[in-house]
Structure formats: structure tokens, C-alpha cells
Design a protein around this nucleic acid. Structure first.
Lengths: 132, 132
DNA sequence: TAAAATACGACTGTATTAGTCCTGTTTTAT
DNA sequence: ATAAAACAGGACTAATACAGTCGTATTTTA
């Protein structure tokens, strides 16, 4: 199936919320409660976005997250590749797919690779701000 | 994850094989053996493509499949929607998704719907013959 | 009439996603 | 000081979808 993960959905919802909120710092709990997103799951996504320098965090009792970038400067592709476990639309395009069992007889690889490029280009063109 | 299913890969391989083979009728077994595709799985895919009027079948000891259309007349999107269980890139775009838990607070639906359109347009532009 | 092909529903195995649980670390209000 | 409330993160479980298998029926022809 070709479907985005919940993580990507949650990321978009969370980033949007932070960007339009007046508060300087937003707590994970506020977002998870408002949108019915499991707290622990969202917390991990936020941690990931911190590692990727989209958010910065403040620990402690008054802690939370703050945006490091403008949403208009974050390509959807970045979010996508940070959050999804794989970015290839077919299995044989993984980095370690030297063991394609179809191998010699497979002729669909190149055209599928082109399709993948087109798909990624869409993601690179869109900014997160387009989803707010 | 955003990935095409094996079924779509197998469909492309099979259609390509049939289209370039000299034989008037091609057996499932020939294709499954040549490309190491599980026979029963491929058989079901072929049955599906028959129902969708891409192939026609002949039963019996000398039976097999025959193309009903030119590959250049089959949009990849058709194959995609025949073979994949769902064509929506996010859950909340399913036909029966009236129970979106985010509901009122969700603002990312429209932009994602537009993304889906763009994605589908790529699939509609490509013909199966582009993958041979 | 036996063999070999399609036809097809039911079932099993496996991989990925989604979500939970538990324990730690940090910071601040009291 | 210390308790509370936030982030941090590894390990585990549950749910889902995909991939593949099995058994049986039907059809046709050598």
C-alpha cells in the first residue's frame, strides 16, 4: 500500500500547532490532548524532530518544545525521511538490495526508479507550511 | 511507509512478459518459474487482471492468459487501483473515514488531499508500457 | 479418463506500524 | 532539599497489512 504513516500526520499536526500557538514553549501534553494523539508516541516523534534540528527542547517543570525553523523552510520531504523507516517505494530499491531474486530477468527497476524520483520531487517541492 | 506492493511489481513483470512473448497463450507457471514468483500468488493476480479486462484466460490443459489491451493503453493507475487494497495515502481519506478522531481540530486534510491528487496524476500519466 | 491448466476461498506466516510501559534525567516552584 | 512535571529513551505488546500456502473445484484436451 502507498500510505503515509501516522508519524507523519502527527508531525504535521504538532508542527502546525506549535507554529500558531502564542506560547513560546509548547508541551507535548497540550498537543496530545487537543488532537487525541497518544502522548508517548508523540513525545518520541518530537524527540526525533529535535535531533533533526527542527525543534529545540527545554527540560524541567516548565519545559516543552520550540520551533527552530520556519515551516516554510522545511520541505515535506525532510519530515518524511526523518519519520518514515524507508523512503523507497519498492523493495528492490533499498540500499542493501543486492540480493534481488528476480535479478537478471527484472526489467522494471529503472522505470520504477524514475517514478520514485518524481514522487520525491513532489515531496521536496511542498513545504510543511503548505499543510497548515 | 510509502511503498508499492509485491502485487504491483509482479503485475508489471507478468504483463511485460506476456507482451513480449511470441506465444499466443502464456501459462502462469512459465512466468512464476522464470522470475521466481510464487505460483499461487501470481495466479490470483492474473485472475484479478482478467476480471478487470486486462487479460483473458483459457482454461484446460493448454490454457493460459492472453492480453486484451496494449500496454500503452493501460495507465499504471489502473493496475495500481486494481491490485492495491487502498489508494488513499492517509487513513482519514478512506471512504468510510467519518470517524476521524482528530475531527474538528484537524487542518491538514485538505492539503494532504491535494498531495494525493498529484500523486495519482503521476500514476495516471504513466502507462504500463513505460515500465518495459 | 488422467493430466494440466485456471478459479478461488480459507488459512498461515511475517513484517511494519502503532501504541504502551517503565525507568531515567532535568529543572523549577515550593 | 525535594516533590512535581516536563523531556528522554529503550523494551515490549498489539494491531494491521502484506505475502505466501493449501486444499478443492472446474475446465479442457491429449
Amino acid at each position: 500500500m502507498v500510505k503515509f504513516s501516522k508519524k507523519l500526520e502527527y508531525s504535521l499536526i504538532a508542527l502546525r500547532h506549535i507554529s500558531i500557538s502564542e506560547d513560546k514553549i509548547t508541551r507535548v501534553r497540550d498537543i496530545s490532548e487537543k488532537y487525541n494523539i497518544p502522548h508517548d508516541l508523540l513525545a518520541k516523534i518530537m524527540q526525533k524532530l529535535k535531533k533533526e534540528c527542527i525543534l529545540e527542547s527545554v527540560q524541567g517543570i516548565n519545559g516543552g518544545y520550540r520551533l527552530l525553523k520556519k515551516l516554510s523552510e522545511i520541505p515535506l520531504f525532510d519530515l518524511y525521511s526523518f519519520v518514515e523507516s524507508s523512503t523507497s517505494i519498492v523493495e528492490c530499491m533499498h540500499d542493501d538490495a543486492s540480493d534481488c531474486y528476480v535479478s537478471d530477468n527484472c526489467t522494471i527497476k529503472d522505470p520504477l526508479a524514475k517514478m520514485q524520483d518524481e514522487f520525491e520531487n513532489i515531496l521536496k517541492t511542498k513545504m510543511v507550511s503548505d499543510f497548515v
